[in-house]
Amino acid sequence: MPYGKYQGRVIADLPGHYLGWFAREGFPNGEIGRLLALMYEIDHNDLRSLLLPLRAGEGLVAPR
Rank of each mutant, 00 (worst) to 15 (best):
R48H: 14
Y40F: 04
L54Y: 15
Y3R: 13
P53V: 04
W21H: 11
L35F: 10
W21F: 11
L52W: 06
L38C: 03
M1T: 08
A56W: 07
Y6D: 05
G57R: 05
L35M: 14
A23W: 07
G26I: 00
P28M: 02
F27R: 03
L51N: 02
G57S: 06
I42W: 03
H17M: 11
R9V: 02
L47G: 06
G4W: 04
Y40A: 00
Y18P: 01
I42C: 05
I32A: 00
N29P: 09
Y18M: 09
I32F: 00
F22L: 14
G26Q: 02
G8L: 08
A37Q: 08
F22N: 13
L54R: 14
L36K: 04
G26A: 00
L52A: 09
D13S: 08
S49A: 15
L36Y: 05
D13I: 00
L14F: 09
P28R: 03
G59N: 12
A62P: 04
E31R: 04
G33K: 00
Y6I: 01
G8N: 14
F22H: 15
Y18K: 10
P28S: 04
L14W: 11
R48D: 11
H17E: 15
A56H: 09
R9C: 11
G59E: 11
A37C: 02
Y6E: 03
P53H: 07
L50C: 12
G57A: 06
A23N: 12
E25T: 05
W21V: 06
G33W: 00
L36T: 03
D13Q: 07
